[in-house]
Design a protein around this nucleic acid. Structure first.
Lengths: 237, 237
DNA sequence: GATGCGGGTTATCGACCGATAGATAGGCGC
DNA sequence: GCGCCTATCTATCGGTCGATAACCCGCATC
């Protein structure tokens, strides 16, 4: 702080500029942007973000052409690499009982999805009108819900999806389980409510309760002709 | 400016100003603010809001001291008068079977809550860090969840909440039903996904499936001494 | 030890946005 | 039909924010 011969050092308002490689700096900015925007929303100011990163605001524009590009990067950072391809294998593995597989999957899925960043970014991007959410959820529907329902059908001796296509109502039932898990995150990181410590146990109970309660509704929801497919029936009368 | 006989009329950029009573104008602004902010979020600009209302932006400031006051008004407009006191009566009415009451309640609750405005304002206010959400949800927990669980306990011959307090896990199970209903709205009005037309039927199935699946989990979750009340068993073997 | 590449900074622009001041005009009371 | 009250408008201010321009300087290179 004392008067130094090097006047330039005193004029400088910024702490000693740390000089990083371009790659490293870009990663730092990207990571910082994720935690910044998922906290304050995409309306957050670039100046504030720069401050948190310990750099000046124009430096952001050396690495990203504009704010929108930075936001895009945040999306990529959060949405990509969150999908575990082993989930599908897990659900397909007929060596384990269906019930056990489904519970195991949801416990693992919950662990991946129930995070501050994911929940909030997901919500912000939805409210912003991006279609990222719908794209992602279509993936979940095609890759997961179909499998869960297929296994449930088989488990309870109902016709396979090939025989009787999965109904909208059946998808709604799986949506409900998905919702009840995701909502735990919403309660904690959007509403700021307390949630139980043993989330894993809660998820397990939710999945169990789902598996107990859903089959009856599924059976009721099967279209009348389909319910009779156990005795082979020709497609058309 | 051009020297015309009726210069004033030509200089006017606005359509013929409609002059309303203060009360009426304020209501108009409040209603417009609700639909505006729930669409674009609270970051929406007062100029844009004024445009939609067909008035000039400074007029807003005649009725509301600042933007924040306008937003507060939006909250009041949306949060208040959405609670139907008959819900509690409905759940307490022992003349009807518990199952029927609970299903009826959720069908009605869903009808009240699954609206564009409610879902989005609720989300926006949560992300903004207001504690309105937690206050509201604490109300729901105290007034609704406790009743639902109480009736479920009674229905299945479990000890009353007075005998064995409601556990966190039991509340989680009711949360799950709440979540699965609320999430229908999130899917539609935040993610922009298609949802079934017959929401009422879906809600009915969700509630039914809940009532089918939950009791077993509840019974398992009861603390050991309580579970043992049927066959008296000493605590330690 | 001059040179220049490139990461980092300061200074600033222009648009936007909340808010205010003061002019304007619709319509009621007399 | 005159005057006043007040709802509404025009004009504008001051701060904010994304973005750009131009300069700074540590270090590798020769």
């Amino acid at each position: 702080m004392a008067a130094q011969p090097r006047a330039a050092a005193n004029r400088r308002r910024h702490p000693p500029r740390t000089r990083l490689s371009a790659d490293e700096r870009e990663r730092l900015i990207a990571r910082g942007a994720v935690s910044f925007f998922c906290e304050v929303g995409f309306g957050g100011q670039t100046r504030e973000l720069a401050k948190r990163l310990g750099i000046t605001q124009p430096l952001l524009y050396r690495y990203f052409p504009n704010k929108e590009a930075l936001i895009d990067r945040v999306y990529r950072e959060v949405y990509l690499n969150r999908w575990d391809p082993r989930w599908e294998e897990l659900l397909d593995n007929h060596a384990r009982p269906a019930r056990e597989r489904i519970v195991a999957f949801y416990r693992d899925y919950a662990k991946a999805v129930l995070s501050y960043e994911w929940i909030r970014i997901f919500m912000f991007s939805g409210l912003r009108g991006m279609n990222l959410n719908s794209r992602y959820l279509t993936l979940v529907r095609d890759r997961i819900y179909t499998r869960v329902l297929r296994e449930l059908r088989r488990e309870h001796g109902m016709p396979s999806p090939a025989e009787v296509p999965l109904s909208e109502m059946e998808f709604e039932l799986v949506w409900a389980l998905h919702a009840s898990i995701f909502y735990i995150g919403i309660r904690k990181w959007i509403y700021g409510l307390e949630i139980p410590e043993n989330v894993d146990e809660v998820v397990q109970n939710l999945a169990t309760s789902f598996l107990d309660g859903v089959p009856a509704v599924m059976q009721r929801a099967l279209p009348p002709p389909a319910r009779a497919t156990k005795r082979r029936v020709p497609p058309s009368g």
